[in-house]
């Protein structure tokens, strides 16, 4: 099945390289929704997410020749979307991770039950309310499946900063979800 999906992509990508408009549109349709959500979680607004998505797809389609089938097309595209989204965020906010905070000391993991049952809407809303830096690291780790080494590389921070950011983000999230209940 996976092989089949990969083959469909090989065909689509070849058609894109040949300038086939339908092939471009098919790839866009396949990935635009999930990629838009990736971008939205980082940028935090519809407008910025759409800007980043647009730039990412234009860049990806123009650079299809550089795509090697060693990574899946989705993973390759997602990396472009993440980079564009972080760029948009950086333009908007002067700095993503404020200086002066001691990032390298990880906070203690708070364990315990959430008083109220978690729902997708509650968790999503709580994530969206997080400050940009927390939200980005948490999204990349929890939802996009990147490890700390990759997050460090993407965001231009150290791995330990990534870890501490994640812990702080989780702590903040837990706080929000607990207070509401």
């Amino acid at each position: 099945m996976e092989q089949e999906v990969l083959n469909i992509h090989v065909d689509l990508i070849a058609r894109c390289k040949a300038g086939d408009r339908d092939a471009h549109y098919q790839l866009y349709k396949m990935y635009s929704r999930s990629m838009f959500n990736v971008s939205y979680r980082i940028t935090g607004t519809q407008e910025d997410a759409e800007d980043a998505l647009q730039e990412a797809f234009i860049s990806a389609f123009r650079n299809l020749v550089h795509y090697r089938a060693d990574a899946t097309f989705g993973a390759w595209l997602k990396r472009i979307v993440v980079n564009k989204s972080i760029n948009v965020l950086k333009k908007r906010r002067h700095e993503l991770i404020p200086e002066g905070e001691d990032w390298d000391i990880p906070e203690e993991e708070i364990q315990g039950d959430y008083k109220e049952e978690l729902t997708i809407d509650r968790v999503k809303k709580a994530i969206e309310e997080l400050p940009d830096g927390y939200r980005t690291v948490l999204s990349l780790y929890l939802l996009e499946g990147y490890d700390h080494q990759e997050i460090a590389e993407i965001m231009g921070i150290t791995e330990s900063t990534s870890k501490s950011q994640l812990n702080r983000a989780k702590g903040r999230l837990r706080e929000k979800l607990t207070i509401r209940s």
């Binding site: 635009s32 929704r33 838009f36 959500n37 979680r41 759409e50 998505l53 647009q54 997708i120 999503k124």
Partner: peptide, 11 residues
């Protein structure tokens, strides 16, 4: 968590 859609103007 992937419940948002981009507007058609992006395409």
């Amino acid at each position: 968590f992937d419940d948002r859609d981009p507007s058609p103007k992006v395409w």
